[in-house]
Design a protein around this nucleic acid. Structure first.
Lengths: 192, 192
DNA sequence: ACTGTAGTGGAGGTTTTCCTCCGGTTCGAT
DNA sequence: ATCGAACCGGAGGAAAACCTCCACTACAGT
């Protein structure tokens, strides 16, 4: 196990029960919720999620007393994975590292579209996710800027939102998604 | 009244009742639905929509027998407005015309996010909307390409999806939205 | 092995939303 | 002014989702 330097990992970990069976159920619920939110959007049925996870509805409610609690956990879980990825690509060249990370980003956010929709701004956990993302991806962006490959008149937050928007869009196929992403990134490149 | 050269306008017009009171209710329902979908997403309560429109639930169901019918109408209505805008900007310089249209596009699609989400692909009306958008915006894009200002290795559909994604994203403020949009459009510019 | 405690699952009451149905109303053509 | 067709609205039954509660089960520490 590698150490987790990001605030979000704490958040999910602290919710996870200690007992073996409970932890298993917790994980199953998180996975089921992730799938359900991706498929049916933010209003997915909680009973359905419990059923998919193979647990009773009561178990869902004990782990996540409100729908929002469940959202927050799914969201934090994804952000956490994304932070790990940022470390994986750290060895690449500045621009390649940034684009590789953003490429993975678009993959994860397919689910996040629905999740974020419900998490409109005012969640405390949202701040932690922000911070983690900044901590993970910010350096990649700054490195690309210092290498003269990314423009300086935009913030990391600008970049993130642009990519998030594109990631949430439905494309005809994987090719189109890549093409559009690379066009948008051409706009991020420092003008030659 | 200007003539309506786009297929979508037919679709909405053909649904609209002829009698005065009925037409008024139809319009009120459409407006209420638009607001409700923008606010609560695709699962907004139909009874709530009827209440907002100041009509009974029965009236809603007569005009739009299914939820999908209502979606389709709201969607077609917005696409229609967007087509009109394309004609308004036709007089500008090629690149300015394109960006002006896309800028208006981002405004309208705030609502459309929720609508499209539910209209996943297989609607007949969706084809008509596609066609109309293509007919309205396609020429603007091609003109910019012929003027050597837009890159040629992307399709109009690519452009539309990129913009739609950005339009659906929540930004801190109007400034950020404009900034991000213009960065993405820098990627669309023909490289100098 | 034993025991206390944390965890489990689902029955069922409550609330919300859906959608039909029909007695009464309004419009517009004559 | 009158008439009939088109339209209105909401009562109310069906279906779905929510969420509480508690008798039962399985884990972890001794």
């Amino acid at each position: 196990m590698t150490p987790q330097p990001f605030p979000v990992s704490e958040i999910v970990a602290s919710r996870r029960p200690h007992r073996k069976d409970a932890a298993r159920n917790f994980d199953a619920l998180l996975a089921a919720a992730r799938a359900a939110f991706a498929e049916h959007g933010a209003e997915a049925s909680l009973e359905d999620i419990a059923r998919r996870a193979g647990v009773g509805i009561g178990t869902l409610y004990r782990n996540f007393p409100t729908r929002r609690d469940l959202f927050e956990s799914v969201y934090a879980d994804e952000v956490n994975e994304l932070c790990q990825v940022a470390e994986e690509v750290a060895g690449l060249e500045p621009w390649e590292a940034l684009t590789a990370w953003l490429d993975r980003f678009t993959g994860y956010t397919v689910t996040k579209r629905a999740v974020r929709e419900a998490l409109d701004g005012d969640a405390e956990i949202f701040q932690a996710c922000r911070k983690s993302m900044e901590a993970a991806g910010g350096p990649l962006f700054e490195r690309a800027q210092q290498a003269g490959q990314a423009r300086r008149d935009m913030s990391f937050d600008d970049l993130l939102r642009m990519i998030a928007g594109i990631a949430a869009t439905a494309f005809d196929d994987e090719d189109q998604r890549r093409r559009v992403l690379s066009i948008a990134l051409d706009g991020v490149r420092a003008s030659r």
